[in-house]
Structures are given as structure tokens and as C-alpha cells.
């Protein structure tokens, strides 16, 4: 319970560094989700609508990638972005951008795999009708993405959950630098290692509250959308 009290105190005091950490966490997670969506939705839609030899294998690999170990991705991105790595000249290691890259790689397969399933289900339903309407392939994909938007919103939520809860990869590529790359999760890890367990629990409670709030907002959007579009 002391964690809950600490959480209340943190929020009520309006601790500036807490807000900075929350802001960075949201910024990194949401940016990663947006990038993952820009890559994952078109890829998922393409995979849902095309048939080619080896498609099953691609789907299996994609589904498996939903469980990519964050630490491995973190390490791979670290080695890529390190000054001694191939992309070292970008100077991105230990920056929020590096964290966004790692998170986007973790989230993109989730978005693509779940979008593929969602869109394929809808395609089976819509196929005859869209063909009869003479819709071009581009228009078909557009219709499927738009009409599946409420389900795809939930897909984004799953991706966001993964990004917001992740600690291993962001710790490695971000370095948990105070005021610069410290997120909710790395701050919790740090406070735990400092033995300040109530503060760690307090931060944890704040993180959970934020995730719940975002889910609530999305749920509201879904319900509204469903009333409007059926």
C-alpha cells in the first residue's frame, strides 16, 4: 500500500521530473506505435490480400516475431547504433530516437501480424462485394483498413502496451540517462536497484494508471465509432 501512497504523493506534488519521465515514456511509446503502424498496417494488409508460395511460412515467422525478446532487439540496435557499429556516425545511441527505433522494431511485428489476421477476416466477408463494385486493389485495401479501424485500434493498443511496459531494450539503447532517456520503466528499475521499493511501486502505480487511462480513452473511441458505423 505504501506504493499507492507514494504514487498519490508523486502526482499531487506535481513532481516536475516525474512529468518529464511520463512525457518521455508516452512520446517514445506512441512514436514507436505510429512508426510500427505505418510499416505494419500496409504490410499486414498486403499479406492478407496476396497469395504466393511460402506465404504460410511468412505468416508463421511474423506471428513468432510478436514474441521477439526485447533484450535481444535492444542489443542488436545497440550494436548497430554504437559508434563502432555500422550506423555509429548517426550518433543516436543513448538518445530517445534509439529507444523509438528499438521499440518500433518490437511493436511492428505485433501490429503487422494482428492487422493481417483482422484484415484477412474482413476480406473474406467483403471480397465478393468489393469485386462486384469494381473496386481497384488500392481502394479495396483502403476500404478494409478503414472498415477494420476499430479492431485495428485495439491492435495499436496491444502494440502500445508492449512498448510502454518494455524495459530491457530501452535500458540498453537509451542508457537510462536522468532527464534525457529515463522512462517510467527504467526509472522503476533504477529505484528498485536503489532499494527505494515504495518509490518504485509508486512509479509502477502511475504507469499502470496511465496505461489504464489510455485504454479507457480508446475504449470510448471504439464505442462511439461502433455506434456511428456499426
Amino acid at each position: 500500500m505504501s506504493g499507492f501512497h507514494t504514487a498519490m504523493e508523486l502526482v499531487l506534488q506535481g513532481d516536475a521530473s516525474l512529468y518529464a519521465i511520463v512525457r518521455l515514456s508516452l512520446l517514445v511509446s506512441l512514436s514507436a506505435v505510429v512508426i510500427a503502424a505505418l510499416v505494419g498496417f500496409p504490410f499486414g494488409a498486403w499479406l492478407a490480400l496476396t497469395r504466393f508460395p511460402g506465404r504460410d511460412a511468412v505468416i508463421i515467422v511474423l506471428n513468432a516475431c510478436m514474441g521477439l525478446p526485447p533484450v535481444v532487439i535492444g542489443l542488436a540496435v545497440f550494436l548497430l547504433l554504437s559508434r563502432s557499429g555500422p550506423l555509429g556516425s548517426w550518433g543516436l545511441l543513448f538518445t530517445p530516437q534509439a529507444m523509438v527505433i528499438a521499440e518500433a522494431i518490437l511493436v511492428a511485428p505485433i501490429v503487422a501480424a494482428l492487422a493481417r489476421q483482422t484484415i484477412e477476416d474482413l476480406w473474406l466477408e467483403y471480397r465478393a462485394e468489393l469485386e462486384a463494385m469494381g473496386a481497384t486493389p488500392l481502394r479495396r485495401v483502403g476500404a478494409l483498413l478503414w472498415d477494420a479501424r476499430l479492431s485495428l485500434l485495439t491492435v495499436l493498443l496491444a502494440g502500445f502496451g508492449r512498448a510502454a511496459a518494455e524495459v530491457g531494450a530501452v535500458m540498453i539503447v537509451g542508457g537510462n540517462i536522468d532527464g534525457f532517456t529515463r522512462t517510467m520503466t527504467t526509472a522503476i528499475a533504477l529505484e528498485t536497484s536503489k532499494g527505494d521499493l515504495p518509490l518504485a511501486m509508486g512509479l509502477g502505480a502511475v504507469l499502470i494508471a496511465i496505461v489504464v487511462a489510455i485504454n479507457g480513452v480508446v475504449w470510448g473511441m471504439r464505442s462511439y465509432g461502433e455506434r456511428k458505423a456499426g
Binding site: 466477408e125 467483403y126 465478393a128 462485394e129 472498415d147 456511428k228 456499426g230
Partner: peptide, 11 residues
Amino acid sequence: VFQRPVMLRRS
């Protein structure tokens, strides 16, 4: 018009 027309999830 199909026997069981599918309505798009729109207005």
C-alpha cells in the same frame, strides 16, 4: 446484388 449482401461497416 448478392443473395446476402454484405453491408460495409459504415453509414
